[in-house]
Write a protein that binds this DNA or RNA. Structure first.
Lengths: 196, 196, 196, 196
DNA sequence: GATGAATGAGGGTTCATTCAT
DNA sequence: TATGAATGAACCCTCATTCAT
């Protein structure tokens, strides 16, 4: 029991260290031994928990995307109007980004590069995330809350892209402006457009 | 003169080869010797035109972002209304993506990862690109064409992010749907919102 | 006593496991943890009985060469003519090989490679084995049973080499032919030559 | 042309270096960088000529076994009686061993261990070598020069084993006795037996 | 300028060995 | 005694870069 806790703990420590190091250097420039040092374990210990460097990234994606998606899902369940759901989604995401900027950096930056070697892995998780947005839009269209003169899928991608860019520019910039406010602003544009 | 043309030609061939190889494998997984083979030159020749592998990426960004920005700028100059300018921008960008999917893949994917080691370089170009959008928005706000209840900078980023994501999903997907139409749809949402 | 028996038992199990694993993979490609798994003990337990991987091989040689030499010695003691002694020697050896092909593989193959790092250890045992043959030859030469126009030492080595090769080719081949018969044939050649 | 000569030369230098290092340490304990240093090339250069460490051993076997077999074959062609052919074979082999003790050590020691990972490769060459002996014996049996009361294949293996052991003990021992004489003695035993 | 053989620093990974439990 | 998670030194191989031709 204590054993299992220790083991779990060490795996978590490695993942947390990987987030820091990958965020700082990028996956390819990060050294496994740096992750080990950051985690406070020996180089070899990494390989008791992950079969390769790539597998660390995979594990990191899997666990955190799951956490993110589950968080968003449970948040949007708390309200019933689809506009409110979208608001909750944006707010939650901004909060996530605000709380874990390094993780955000890894998820947004490496998810793209990863397309090269782990798309078949990342795709389902990304698809699940996207579906959360799509589902809100589709349901909102059905109730008449949202218009039907656009493809929910395309708009969901646009919203995802806009949020993604917003998040990335926030975590990369030194001066931390009000992310939540920008999220709300962004949402307002998507809901009502920019035309006066 | 012929000499210079030849030289210019070889540099272009290397850049074109780099686009293909970087798009296929990603910058880090791409081998310089693959780029050389694709360009039909010897490995060493690469270093007569670029001082390092990284420099190839830099050159690739520089020339193509310049081309893209100049293209967009001249396009939007052809119309006067800001809504029209936005339309031209989106159309032009979609056309660019459609014509050069591999280049798009490199520009969108590597631009992010590159933040780790060439941000100080990529930032100005990216800023310039963003400014094109910001300028339209700000000018549109001034003339009253667009509302003022949002930050032009934030929305510009949102539009960039949405377009970026749209482009990426298009170049990565096998089945090539109508990109121009999606761009127009996306623009419609930004202009008028999704609320019914 | 029961304690000692248990301890002895575990040591034996490790050695037996090592024979299987070393035979299958070779000493260098064999993993200590594989030996441990095969023996049904923990990795660390190995080191309660052997100070290193090399020491396992040493122990394996020592005990089994001793067993082999003692077996051969007691067999050849049962007859008095030196030709008979040679026959017994060959028969016994073939029987040993037949009964323990994996052990044979380890003894014949690794004994050579081992020359690199444990010759000073393996040499005495090998010398003792060789002496058994030499002694028969020398004694047979003294009684006139064997000719004296050759060096007993050289011939002993030749016989050893021939038997060794015979054994190795038998254990390595899939189809198991009649080893005993080949041994007898080999002996016949050594006794009477191949000239008609 | 000069290029090819240089290339060939470098490959040869690496193989020669490998012989020295493998002989001294054994294949598994030998370091690729030691081979490189001994050959006077950079570590990476090795991999321009061989795809892996194992491939060096393969190349080493292939070229030298070929040389050995061809040498033996041409030697035995010079005489017509089969007893003479056997004599030439033994003499030639002893000469080979005498001239290249380190190579002999590698060929005899590693050929065995190699059975673990490259038997399918080494087998044909070994088989060819064995066939040279078998062919002499069979032909000698047909002409009546040799008796027929034994299997040529078994005796060929015995002779190979005896020679192999003789060679190995000679190269491993510090005091270099008369190898040629021992070879002749060994041959005498095989031809006429040890019985008085 | 052009070549491509050569370089050698560097890193992901393995695995014999240890030691806290 | 026994365990097996943890260690970390060591090594094969890669590949961006150089330079003699």
């Amino acid at each position: 029991m204590a054993q299992k806790a220790r083991t779990r703990d060490k795996r978590e420590r490695i993942l947390a260290a990987a987030v820091k190091v990958f965020a700082a250097k990028g996956f390819y420039c990060a050294r496994v031994s740096e992750v080990a040092r950051e985690a406070g374990v020996a180089d070899g210990t990494i390989y008791l928990y992950f079969s390769s460097k790539e597998e660390i990234l995979r594990g990191l994606f899997e666990e955190n995307m799951r956490r993110l998606i589950d968080g968003l899902t449970s948040e949007i369940a708390k309200v019933s109007s689809y506009t409110d759901k979208m608001t909750r989604l944006v707010d939650s995401y901004c909060e996530f980004v605000h709380k874990e900027p390094q993780l955000t950096e890894v998820l947004t930056v490496e998810l793209r590069e990863s397309g090269k070697f782990m798309n078949e892995f990342a795709a389902p998780l990304f698809g699940e995330y996207l579906r959360v947005i799509v589902d809100i839009l589709v349901a909102g269209q059905k109730t008449g809350e949202f218009g039907t003169n656009y493809s929910a899928r395309t708009v969901a991608r646009a919203i995802f892209g806009a949020l993604d860019e917003l998040a990335l520019s926030w975590v990369m910039s030194k001066s931390k402006w009000d992310l939540r406010a920008s999220g709300r602003e962004l949402l307002g544009v998507f809901l009502h457009g920019i035309c006066s």
